[in-house]
Amino acid sequence: MSTVYFTKDHEYISVDGDIGTIGITDHAQQALGDVVFVELPKAGATLARGKEAAVVESVKAASDVYAAASGEVVAVNTALEGAPGMINEDAQGRGWFFKVKLADKAELANLMDAAAYEAFLKTLD
């Protein structure tokens, strides 16, 4: 059973045991528009919470994706490199970016759950 948490920068982290799967939310992909490129972290890299972890580019602009939690990258979704449109089609499913082995699960307490994220989105416009 996985639990999904959200950041104010519109990343999600889906946590299963000590593995977190990170990507951008459906709201984020809609706001970006057609994604044409992603730059993913390397497997084995150590990420610090809140630091740049990946880049996602639409036709119009580039955006940073931040690490929702600290940890070591244990898998990257290399399928996105050839088919970045998957992020638009299924941001919170097949469009995941990378997985980290969580360094400190206590960090998750700083994130929003689904209900809090939905409420947060309502405050945006």
């Binding site: 528009g33 057609d34 639409s58 036709v59 638009n88």
Partner: peptide, 20 residues
């Protein structure tokens, strides 16, 4: 989707998105 451009509220894209 409307954005400010040169002082006007302008459409950056419609439902299909920029690529289509």
């Amino acid at each position: 989707r409307m954005v400010p451009f040169a002082g006007y509220d302008m459409p950056v894209h419609y439902r299909d998105g920029i690529l289509k």
